[in-house]
Design a protein around this nucleic acid. Sequence first.
DNA 1: CCTCGTTTGTGAAACGTTTCATGCAACGGA
DNA 2: TCCGTTGCATGAAACGTTTCACAAACGAGG
Lengths: 341, 341
Amino acid sequence: MAASIKEVAQRAGVSLGTVSNVLNRPDIVSPETRKRVQEAIEELGFVRNDSARQLRAGRSRTVAIVVLDVSNPFFTDVVRGAESIVEGAGGMVVVCNSGGDAAREHRHLDVLEEQRVQGILVTPVSDGKQPRLDRIVTRGIPVVLVDRGAGLANQCSVAVDDVLGGRIAAEHLAERGHRRIAFVGGPLALRQVTDRRTGAETALAELGLPAPLVVETPMLSVSAGRQAADEIVALPSTRRPTAIFCANDLVALGVLQALTAHGLKVPDDIALVGYDDIEFAAGAAVPLSSVRQPREQLGRTAAQLLLEESTDPEHHEHRHVVFQPELAVRQSSERKRRRVR
Amino acid sequence: MAASIKEVAQRAGVSLGTVSNVLNRPDIVSPETRKRVQEAIEELGFVRNDSARQLRAGRSRTVAIVVLDVSNPFFTDVVRGAESIVEGAGGMVVVCNSGGDAAREHRHLDVLEEQRVQGILVTPVSDGKQPRLDRIVTRGIPVVLVDRGAGLANQCSVAVDDVLGGRIAAEHLAERGHRRIAFVGGPLALRQVTDRRTGAETALAELGLPAPLVVETPMLSVSAGRQAADEIVALPSTRRPTAIFCANDLVALGVLQALTAHGLKVPDDIALVGYDDIEFAAGAAVPLSSVRQPREQLGRTAAQLLLEESTDPEHHEHRHVVFQPELAVRQSSERKRRRVR
DNA sequence: CCTCGTTTGTGAAACGTTTCATGCAACGGA
DNA sequence: TCCGTTGCATGAAACGTTTCACAAACGAGG
């Protein structure tokens, strides 16, 4: 059933090595033999056994990307960016989902290490030391951290300046005349979340404005956003913020939905700014202002760094690429009508 | 650098086979030797080489799922369902994205075949004959079709009755008093799309209502939905539908956004029903009525069928599981106010 | 005619596992 | 004492490739 190179050789009346040559260096074998071999391959429905190939050759053409949340459009866009580069180089991308769970992340990394993949792009669940990643790196498998500032120096990283992103969002809202601003997102243990918060707080402090009300959520999801908005709506109107900056767009969409359900108008009653600029942000019924990250670019760059290190590990120097976010201004943070009129 | 079983054996002062036994059948080796071996493994940082293991053992613990669109939350939920089952059985899921492109789908399937994965869950791009899939099946790799009625009998499939789904949506809108109903979605070559349309048309015909206006979109995305809505808004109000049934939620969200932008109220001016009931549907600013598919359940069942076939190919009989969709009624299709009041 | 280089094909070794037949020692029962 | 078991470890074969040193055939140049 599973035809091997040996049977192909037999059928084509050539040696085993010749078949391998047809497969890997077709140019060094004469046209006629090549043809005969190819016919045999065709007839037998032969398909290379990648395990054997990899065992002998030591290399794999598979790049893995381990994402925090496969349901978050932000990550699927990063994946698409990585795919475009890796497939262009003749490789293949597989996606693994940690779902924010450290145990699952570990399981995935273990299996990927056993598989000796060509390299791993990963947004780790936690920020601390990563003995697993370190071991993988010392084994010679390149690792690139995605959307995570590089703590350690033994791997490349690509990220977006989240502190700047938070700053931009806060300055935008301040410039629109808002004084009472809330920050919604969590868990605060996530680096991305704290960076965005820090940026916003710093900017407000510099402008002499009060620190934002921080509402922590258990995760970055639509439903978490909805619950947070319920809390905010329950505040007495004198303390209720006039603007909310959310740690990502999923949360912002949840907030938007809950505010609307409570009869509050966005942006007239409360302005809203999200983060990531996923497609659903622009498509929301009140189009969402959002801090845009170059999502696909993030994936592309990460993949490029990985391939670079993989191709020439000797001369490779680890790099840390940081992109600048920019604000996409939409209706959810338009100037309040009462001020315009 | 890459410690092998042989070096572990040497260090522990045992034979090569004993190390393998510690790894695979720890119970048949005496506690003391086991301990010595495990220490050696620890000290050398040994990690099994999966290529060699697989080459020899013939089996893999990796299940692949090839999805049409990794950015569509519908598929990410199916993935999560499959993950829960496969990981429960000690396996691992990798996700491959065809992006609706037949060539990429083929590339992925080829590589997966070379890798001799344990099995493949796939929503194929096209409906016709699938020589590649047939070959994979004859090689002994189980394949389960996801969200695709089974044309051929040589594999299992799980799907949702899309004709019924279309019927449910149409009957719901008719019951709400709508007479002029539009269907938005495409490309019409996609089985899912035509089934949903057929169901709607059949239902309307049975009720003696006029056939729906069909607006075909080039793909099932938010932006495609926006463009389709622009077309509909441009119609003279006497011909303009009072309700729109969309082939999926992404399209429906686009339609919703465009209608709102044109100043039309949902559901008062135009009612809206989507399909899939993704999380963003309930979270939209006008919560979207939607035909719910058991997304995770779809993934779970597919994975179960796959593992079943994989475990016991002899006694396995291919099955075709069809789920019933149900309607989640929300604000976007509430009874028109002018009729209620 | 000899030598040399080129082109093309060969055969065996090696990659790191798993598996299986076999060896060896110790033990209990008759 | 002998035999049959039992428990544990061994060593070699096999999985399907890639790679590499080498051989065969051939023509060209001296």
